[in-house]
Write a protein that binds this DNA or RNA. Structure first.
Length: 265
DNA sequence: ATTGTGGCCTGCCCGC
DNA sequence: TGCGGGCAGGCCACAA
C-alpha cells in the first residue's frame, strides 16, 4: 500500500538519517536485493560513509551516498512493495499500514544499517514485496505524479489504448500512484476507470488533472492513501458515498477496482 | 513499442 | 480446533 504519500513520509523520516556515519550493513535476505545488487556490494558502498540527501521519485526512496571526497558516490534505492515499513532509530511515521500486519517481528527485518552513533535505519517487510537496490534505474521512472502539469498529464494519456486506470498506474509513465489513490481520484473526477486513456475530452483532462492534484494533497494532509472518501466503500456490496448507487467491483488493468456506474462515465 | 496475464510473496480471514 | 482457499497490492517476466 505504500504509494507516494507513504513513501514521502518515509523520505521525511530518512532525513533524520543524513550525515550519520554508517558502521554496519545488515542484508540478511538476498532475495530482497534486486537487479544484481549484492550484500557485499552494499557493504562496500555504505560502510564508513553517510547519506547526504533523501530524495523520492514516485514510490522510490533514494538516498544519496557521500563519497570519501565529499562528492556523491552512489544511490541507495528503497522500494516498499505493499507492506514495507521504514524505521529510523526504532520509530516510524506510520503505525497502521493497510494490508499489512500491525505487529512488528524481527523476522520481518529485510535490511538494516547501524550508525556509528548507536542508532540505525531498518526496513521491515512481512510480505517481501519491496526491494533494496544500489544505483536504481531512475531514468525509467515516469513523471512524478504529485507535481505533474496538465500538459504532462495530457501527454501521458495521449495515444494510449490502455484503460485510463492502467495508464495512471504505469510507473514508467507517471510515478507514484497506487491502487487506492487511483480509485479515489477517478471516483472524484467522475471518470470510468475502464475508459481508453486517450478518450478524454479537454474538459475531462482538466477535471482529472485537478482531482489528481487535490486528491494527493488532501490525502497527504489526512495522513495516507487509505484516507480517501471512497475507501471505506471499497468492500463488496457497498454503495457510492456520493449518490448511493451500488458500487461496481471488477478488475481493470489487472487490479481490483471499485467504481460508481452512475456518476463515473 | 503496447497491452494483457500470470506469478511472486506472506498474513489474514472466512467457511467447513 | 485445524485446514484450505481466496484475497490484498506492487511490480516483473513473459506472450501476443
Amino acid at each position: 500500500m505504500p504509494e507516494l504519500i507513504e513513501v514521502e513520509l518515509y523520505r521525511q523520516l530518512a532525513e533524520g538519517a543524513l550525515d550519520r556515519a554508517i558502521a554496519k550493513v545488515d542484508a540478511p535476505d538476498d532475495w530482497y536485493l534486486k537487479r544484481g545488487t549484492t550484500a557485499e556490494e552494499l557493504r562496500a558502498a555504505l560502510e564508513g560513509r553517510s547519506f547526504v540527501q533523501a530524495r523520492r521519485t514516485g514510490k522510490w526512496l533514494l538516498l544519496d551516498i557521500g563519497g570519501d571526497d565529499g562528492e556523491p558516490s552512489g544511490v541507495l534505492g528503497l522500494h516498499f512493495g505493499m507492506s514495507g515499513r521504514l524505521l529510523v532509530d526504532g520509530t516510524g511515521p506510520i503505525e497502521r499500514l493497510e494490508y499489512a500486519p500491525d505487529r512488528s517481528e524481527a523476522k520481518w527485518d529485510r535490511f538494516a544499517l547501524a550508525f556509528d552513533d548507536g542508532g540505525g535505519l531498518r526496513m521491515q517487510d512481512p510480505r517481501r514485496l519491496g526491494a533494496v537496490e544500489l544505483d536504481p534505474d531512475e531514468t525509467s521512472l515516469g513523471i512524478e505524479a504529485s507535481t505533474i502539469t496538465p500538459a504532462q498529464l495530457r501527454s501521458v494519456l495521449a495515444r494510449s489504448h490502455a484503460p485510463l486506470k492502467a495508464r495512471l498506474l504505469d510507473q514508467n509513465h507517471i510515478a507514484g500512484i497506487g491502487n487506492l489513490l487511483v480509485d479515489e481520484m477517478l471516483w472524484r473526477a467522475g471518470l470510468d476507470p475502464a475508459r481508453p486513456a486517450s478518450s478524454l475530452s479537454p474538459a475531462e483532462l482538466r477535471r482529472l488533472h485537478r482531482h489528481l492534484r487535490t486528491t494527493i494533497a488532501e490525502l497527504t494532509a489526512r495522513g495516507g492513501s487509505h484516507t480517501g472518501d471512497l475507501h471505506q466503500a471499497r468492500v463488496r456490496g457497498s454503495t457510492c458515498p456520493k449518490d448511493g448507487t451500488p458500487l461496481e467491483r471488477r478488475t481493470v488493468g489487472g487490479r481490483t477496482t471499485y467504481s460508481c456506474p452512475r456518476h463515473q462515465r
